[in-house]
Simulated scan of single mutants.
Amino acid sequence: MSLCLRAMSVEAGGRALVDRLALEVAEGEVVGLVGPNGSGKSTALRCVYRALKPTSGAVLLDGTDLATLSLRDSARQIAALTQESRSELDFTAGEVVALGRAPHSRGNRPLTPGERELCHEAMDRMDIGHLADRSVLTLSGGERQRVLVARALVQEPRVLVLDEPTNHLDIRHQVGLLSFLRGSGLTVLTALHDLNLAAAVCHRVAVLSHGTLVADGPPADVLTPGLVRKVFGVAATVVPHPRTGVPQLLYDLVPTDTSTSPGDATPADALPEGTRS
């Protein structure tokens, strides 16, 4: 299932948080949204999983405007992991994972044997099977994050929207989650702060600055020293990974430059060839 953000804008308090964002994610593609804090990544994702309504423009699933679908119908297609995913209810991890079946259920019917097996498989995939009977209130941040990813998978979506999915995860579980996403065949739109992780997992990265898309393309084409310095305000040396060849960034601090500040939008003529929007 393809995902398209068509000239999407979000305004609040007279300010454009997202400005005419145009972005396409093909079926089975993993696209990473990267950018400084406040660049509009989470706001854009909220429009995709319908926690926020765009001021203008639209979000399309296989060409159908999301706004024309019921919330239940869109939840059968799109699962989300948000930054604010918290639960103060004393549910077990297994119960939280099972909530992923809610868009497919009516009333309070119990899970079918097939749904219970789906929950077990998702928990095993996220390495949380041993936590099934633990209260989520007793879990670490990383354990809870993996519970929430498992809940999203149990939803059986065709599109995954993930806002900083590696938050709280140790390096083993970061690599495991991102490797799964890359090979899942799902359409994935994810916000990531770690540019090296984005380069490793994403087919394409889309760079936002002040709500504007300033670059979009394969990581090797987009994550150049010039763009990283202009958008993020740091100097970076880009080297190929010795085994995979994907770009990896080594950072140095940039002396204060009064002419620019981190997050300033990059002029189109300063962007790498083939990445101008």
Results as ranks from 00 to 15, higher is better:
residue 126 M to E: 04
residue 258 T to K: 11
residue 59 V to F: 14
residue 40 G to F: 03
residue 18 V to I: 04
residue 121 E to N: 08
residue 231 V to I: 13
residue 192 L to S: 09
residue 59 V to Y: 09
residue 201 V to A: 15
residue 116 R to D: 08
residue 245 G to W: 05
residue 36 P to Y: 05
residue 1 M to G: 08
residue 61 L to K: 13
residue 264 D to F: 02
residue 182 R to N: 15
residue 9 S to H: 02
residue 220 A to M: 00
residue 127 D to S: 14
residue 142 G to H: 06
residue 126 M to Q: 11
residue 160 L to D: 04
residue 238 V to W: 00
residue 236 A to P: 09
residue 35 G to C: 00
residue 198 A to P: 06
residue 143 E to C: 05
residue 51 A to R: 13
residue 186 L to T: 08
residue 147 V to Y: 12
residue 31 V to M: 04
residue 49 Y to N: 04
residue 36 P to H: 07
residue 26 A to E: 06
residue 241 H to Q: 07
residue 64 T to L: 15
residue 74 S to R: 02
residue 133 D to E: 13
residue 75 A to H: 02
residue 129 G to Y: 00
residue 26 A to S: 00
residue 225 P to Y: 03
residue 172 R to M: 10
residue 86 R to K: 14
residue 34 V to G: 04
residue 251 Y to R: 00
residue 58 A to M: 05
residue 160 L to N: 11
residue 209 S to Q: 11
residue 208 L to F: 08
residue 10 V to P: 10
residue 119 C to R: 09
residue 39 S to T: 14
residue 101 R to G: 08
residue 124 D to Y: 06
residue 205 V to E: 12
residue 276 R to Q: 07
residue 154 V to R: 12
residue 224 T to N: 01
residue 260 T to R: 09
residue 77 Q to R: 14
residue 247 P to V: 06
residue 249 L to A: 00
residue 219 P to A: 01
residue 205 V to C: 10
residue 216 D to S: 03
residue 276 R to H: 06
residue 59 V to P: 09
residue 63 G to L: 02
residue 164 E to G: 15
residue 149 V to G: 07
residue 45 L to G: 04
residue 192 L to V: 12
residue 98 A to L: 00
residue 118 L to D: 12
residue 43 T to P: 08
residue 227 L to C: 07
residue 240 P to H: 09
residue 7 A to D: 15
residue 233 G to Q: 10
residue 119 C to Q: 02
residue 209 S to G: 10
residue 192 L to D: 09
residue 202 C to N: 03
residue 36 P to W: 07
residue 98 A to W: 06
residue 62 D to W: 00
residue 104 H to N: 02
residue 110 P to L: 06
residue 233 G to Y: 06
residue 92 T to S: 08
residue 50 R to V: 04
residue 27 E to F: 11
residue 176 G to I: 07
residue 214 V to T: 11
residue 170 D to W: 13
residue 67 A to N: 11
residue 39 S to E: 12
residue 208 L to N: 13
residue 230 K to M: 15
residue 22 A to I: 03
residue 77 Q to I: 14
residue 232 F to N: 06
residue 25 V to R: 02
residue 64 T to C: 15
residue 123 M to S: 03
residue 46 R to L: 04
residue 88 E to I: 07
residue 239 V to G: 05
residue 235 A to Q: 08
residue 152 A to N: 01
residue 272 P to M: 01
residue 48 V to P: 01
residue 162 L to P: 07
residue 22 A to K: 10
residue 29 E to V: 04
residue 200 A to W: 11
residue 156 E to P: 09
residue 10 V to R: 14
residue 171 I to E: 13
residue 266 T to E: 05
residue 147 V to A: 02
residue 27 E to N: 03
residue 163 D to W: 08
residue 235 A to L: 05
residue 210 H to F: 12
residue 25 V to W: 02
residue 268 A to W: 09
residue 211 G to M: 08
residue 164 E to Y: 15
residue 204 R to F: 01
residue 252 D to L: 11
residue 212 T to H: 15
residue 147 V to G: 10
residue 44 A to G: 06
residue 223 L to A: 12
residue 7 A to K: 12
residue 130 H to R: 12
residue 255 P to H: 07
residue 89 L to G: 04
residue 31 V to P: 02
residue 72 R to H: 03
residue 236 A to C: 05
residue 170 D to M: 09
residue 86 R to A: 13
residue 2 S to M: 12
residue 227 L to M: 03
residue 104 H to K: 13
residue 8 M to Q: 13
residue 134 R to D: 01
residue 151 R to K: 10
